[in-house]
Computed example of a mutant assay.
Amino acid sequence: MSVSLHFSEIADVYRFFNLEQTLKHPLVAVIDFGNADEQVAENTRISGDYYCLMFKRYDGNNVRYGRKVIDFNNGSLMCIAPNQVLELKYDLGDCTEKEGWGVFFHPDLIRNTSLQHKIKDYSFFSYETSEALHMSEKEKQIFYDCVQKLDGELQENIDIHTQDIIVSNIELLLNYCTRFYARQFITRKSVNSSVVGQVENILAQYFATGKLAERGLPTVKSLADKVNLSPGYLSDLLKKETGKNAQDHIHYYLIDEAKNILLSTDKSVSEIAYGLGFEYPQYFNKLFKQKTGKTPVEFRNGN
């Protein structure tokens, strides 16, 4: 039987981990998992109204996040956005060794701050578990030092500077995530190159089979599903490897197909647009000019 838990307040996090300490701040928490004692039944699904950076090392690996099992044996960093689901497939109380830390912060903490406008740029919050950040010992220490500074600030009395300092520390953590994920993309270059090849083959076959009129353009999600990655991770991987994100790759094959049709048939631009899966020809015109610098008619007449 599955049990679902949803935490709406940071105080719920303390209660979940059976920590008796007084809540230091209503919108942010730093948890030492070595001191935590979460007792959760099997098949428990957990979600919350907050962001979470979580580094854990457990002597078990039956934790699911999204569609994948998490390997916590060696430790990895997960970045979880509000309302994403963490599924526990076993009783964490059975683990004999647990260590790590978690930083939990509510969106209200960063409201009306510069981080509120930047938070969506941290695309790793949409990654799957299998795309978690695997860190070197040096990187783990850098994160730990940042977490300790954040926790130290939470020990201070709240004053007019508290929010700015806390938010700055959280933003520093997120910026390190960006840096270390960039490193991970580089160190996994051989694997990433294979993914790029798969994506190109999938798109080439899709456009060659004439499925556009029936099914429309492939989506980033459908493309990501075929290579077993999340849409956000796939786009970032492609951007690092080729300079173009997933949507750019789809549009590249679309425009290439459009050029072939424009030069090899007498079909009107509207007919071509409908044949390529566009509901409105004007959108096709706009995209074609954006990608080529010419309208479809200008391209046809110039070639």
Rank of each mutant, 00 (worst) to 15 (best):
M1T: 05
F7L: 08
L19S: 12
L19V: 11
E20W: 08
Q21C: 09
T22H: 14
T22N: 14
H25F: 00
D32A: 09
D37L: 11
Q39H: 13
V40T: 06
R45S: 06
S47Y: 01
G48V: 01
R57L: 03
R57C: 05
D59H: 11
D59L: 09
D59M: 11
N62M: 03
N62K: 06
R64I: 13
G66P: 01
V69I: 07
D71Q: 15
F72M: 11
G75F: 10
L77M: 02
C79M: 12
N83V: 10
N83K: 15
V85P: 03
V85K: 03
L86N: 13
E87C: 05
K89I: 10
L92W: 09
G93T: 09
G93Y: 10
C95F: 11
T96G: 00
G100H: 02
W101V: 01
V103H: 05
F104H: 01
D108N: 15
L109M: 01
L109Q: 00
N112D: 13
Q116Y: 14
D121H: 08
F124K: 04
E128G: 11
T129V: 14
H134R: 13
F143V: 03
D145P: 07
C146M: 10
L150A: 12
I158C: 15
D159C: 15
D164L: 04
D164H: 03
I166N: 05
N169M: 13
L174E: 12
N175F: 10
Y176D: 04
Y176P: 03
C177A: 10
C177K: 06
Y181N: 11
A182R: 05
R188G: 02
S190A: 15
V191F: 15
S193T: 15
S194C: 15
E200G: 01
N201G: 14
A204L: 13
F207C: 09
A208G: 11
T209P: 07
G210F: 07
L217W: 00
A224W: 13
D225I: 13
K226R: 08
N228V: 05
G232V: 03
E241F: 10
T242K: 06
G243K: 13
A246F: 03
Y252T: 10
Y253G: 00
I255D: 04
E257P: 12
K259Q: 06
K259H: 06
T265I: 02
K267W: 06
S268C: 11
S268D: 10
S270W: 04
I272K: 02
F278V: 04
G293Q: 07
V297A: 01
G302H: 06
